[in-house]
């Protein structure tokens, strides 16, 4: 079906500039004009650096989702960042299937759409966790990321992937900028796979939600009320799906200038003959 299928954005959310650098290089991102913490690539991957902790994440994401950048297109969201883990080795990656906030004891469950070697719970804490009491990843941002991102788009496209930076054998005090860069560089191919998966899913939804091209032509030429626009959009969509594009073209050529008459003509075309 020919439609006006726009591109989709995959927004990566990281806490630290040091986490962002390998991603910027890998996805060939450039800073977005007028921003200090947002980068974007030509292949529609966007990167937001939030700062450490829940409040920084909430503030940065709120600014991103409420500002002029919020209207661009459908977005999938991926929180990436370092985390401590009781059992996983340093450098290992884990996709979150549960995100819990230690402070509120609330949990959320990202839809399992990403393929990974490891899945597990991410527990967001306000201070670095050095005792790893549960077999989970400990970070400082995921739950806040979920709270905001899940209100902005399709819930199934909000995901979280953690890279293990510390564990009981390799404590937080051993985390260095060089280690973080190394961990991220090693995970870039997997992150690329996650980005591609999310993009594919988001694109399918975007295409379904896109306006059919004939409707855009009509909307460009005819003054329509909101209700008329909705009706005409769906009527165009139906004519295309039912292989009545020729009838649709004839109606467009007739140059109707009145929404009501146009709706009538489109309805007649739908009813005129069976498939």
């Amino acid at each position: 079906m020919p439609t006006n299928s726009e591109s989709v954005l995959v927004t990566l959310v990281v806490a630290l500039p040091i986490e962002s650098r390998p991603l910027q290089n890998f996805f060939q991102m450039k800073p977005l004009r007028g921003t200090r913490n947002i980068y974007q690539s030509e292949e529609e991957v966007r990167l937001l650096i939030t700062g450490i902790g829940r409040s920084n994440v909430k503030r940065s994401l709120a600014m991103l989702t409420s500002g002029e950048l919020s209207e661009q297109s459908l977005s999938a969201w991926l929180n990436i960042g370092i985390a401590g883990h009781r059992t996983l080795p340093v450098g290992e990656t884990m996709v979150a299937n549960k995100i819990s906030c230690a402070a509120s004891a609330r949990s959320a469950f990202p839809t399992p759409v990403l393929v990974s070697r490891n899945y597990g719970e991410v527990i967001t804490v306000d201070e670095p966790e050095v005792n790893y009491p549960q077999n989970a990843a400990y970070d400082m941002e995921a739950s806040a990321f979920w709270d905001v991102a899940s209100r902005n788009g399709i819930l199934d496209l909000v995901q979280c992937c953690k890279l293990v930076s510390d564990n009981p054998h390799h404590g937080v005090e051993k985390i260095t900028t060089a280690l973080i860069e190394e961990i991220f560089n090693d995970a870039l191919q997997e992150i690329r796979q996650h980005v591609d998966s999310l993009r594919e899913l988001a694109l399918e939804q975007q295409q379904l939600a896109s306006d059919p091209v004939p409707f855009l032509e009509i909307a460009d030429q005819t003054h329509l009320s909101v209700n008329q626009a909705l009706q005409i959009r769906r009527l165009c969509q139906r004519l295309i799906v039912l292989n009545k594009e020729r009838e649709l073209e004839n109606i467009l050529d007739a140059g109707y200038k009145n929404g009501r008459e146009l709706i009538h003509a489109l309805r007649e075309a739908l009813q005129s003959s069976s498939e």
Binding site: A108, T111, V113, I154, L155, D156
Partner: peptide, 15 residues
């Protein structure tokens, strides 16, 4: 907690 949440998409989950 995981079933029928607002914002979930049947078509996407069906994959």
């Amino acid at each position: 907690e995981v079933f029928n949440r607002a914002g979930q998409n049947f078509r996407l989950q069906k994959r």
